[in-house]
Design a protein around this nucleic acid. Structure first.
Lengths: 210, 210
DNA sequence: CCCGGCCTCCACCGATCGGTGGAGCCGGCC
DNA sequence: GGCCGGCTCCACCGATCGGTGGAGGCCGGG
């Protein structure tokens, strides 16, 4: 029997090798591999596989953008396979057009089953992703900060005071406060420290490296 | 030729499969696999492989503890293979007795070479890990907070005010401030928000989930 | 035994923060 | 054209924060 044709996208060679091995043993045809977003989009257009197994953390452009491109081109169904499940990751992946979201610790058989299901047109959500989605629907709006609010929040996360942030953005301190108050409302907190923690938790901010 | 005998420890079946495949193709003998810390220690004692390829993020007890146990038992050389490189991760892994630290995006050939080198008794540091170590030696002091300082910092990260933290810990507000000032000194910041960000960056704090 | 580190507490200061309750301007959408 | 949302700004308040410069008690190691 000939199974579905898939394209593997992951920046870890070892993971690609593992997927190739697991899928091949189950009769799934691996049409190609990509280690970054550009190659993923190019190969998806070229080979038009049934399913693209997409990691979200890639060097350069993110897997999210690649997913959107591939879906927009109608080149394949995209099944996200990644390590982390933050609210923001799951939601954005589905928004970007992914047909499913699985975590890398999914047992091999379920992974193969997921790929087949995705190829057959089904939506494939791992239990964690399903939970995130359900909670996102039940409870809150994903906050969606405005550009200015995000800039102010960045300043706060760097430890800047309101006057400092005002200087950097060339606006008044009162304006900084206004933005900040709206950020507090959206994140449902009432101080700057909690706001930064909440934003990090929701994936609205990343931790700096140096 | 018969290569070194290794034990694979990773909670992702796909990664284990990938490693098994890559290593087998290079003549390395895979003596077993474990998906959690307990199994890792047990199998290491049982099989006494040349090298344990150890992921740090495992369900239950961490790979760090498993590493320390295996090293203490003299059961094998432990080569850490993980996704992230924070200062804290690298330093603690080496402290725990790991003979090397590689990232999962290491190309297959270098990974195999690393395993062979580790089996032969060498120290195996990926470029990122080497950089972290070098900078840690240069820039030194991992701050090392006291128990109380850590508790206060936790409160701050949860958005508590100094009076709140004082109540929770059953101490005076002045005491909270004293601890906090020392935390600021150690983390080289001068406000609570930056302290939380710095602590997160250094791995002294984790982000809560719910 | 004494030293040092950790934990505890005090009083007081200026700066910053969070919050209130407004207001006007502009650009895009209906 | 009208409306709405985002961005800007104002004055004023009480609470909190960060910092100063102390102090005493407790415990473990040299």
């Amino acid at each position: 029997m000939t199974g579905p044709v898939v394209l593997l996208v992951d920046d870890h060679p070892v993971v690609r090798e593992g997927l190739r091995s697991v899928l091949a043993a189950a009769g799934v045809v691996v049409a190609g591999e990509a280690g970054d977003a550009e190659a993923a989009v190019r190969l998806a257009r070229e080979h038009r596989p049934d399913v693209v197994l997409m990691d979200l953390r890639l060097p350069g452009r993110s897997g999210l953008e690649a997913t959107a491109d591939i879906v927009a081109a109608g080149a394949a169904r995209v099944l996200v396979l990644t390590t982390f499940d933050t609210d923001a990751d799951v939601l954005r992946a589905i928004e970007a057009g992914a047909v499913g979201y699985l975590l890398k610790d999914t047992p091999s058989e379920q992974l193969v089953a997921g790929v087949r299901a995705a190829a057959a047109g089904a939506t494939v959500l791992g239990p964690e992703a399903a939970d995130r989605l359900a909670r996102a629907v039940r409870a809150p709006r994903p906050p969606a900060l405005t550009a200015r609010e995000e800039q102010v929040l960045h300043g706060v996360a760097r430890g800047a005071s309101n006057p400092q942030i005002a200087r950097e953005l060339a606006i008044g301190e009162a304006t900084v406060k206004s933005h900040l108050i709206r950020v507090f409302e959206k994140l449902q907190v009432d101080d700057r420290t909690s706001a930064v923690v909440a934003a990090l938790r929701l994936g609205l901010l990343q931790l700096p490296d140096p």
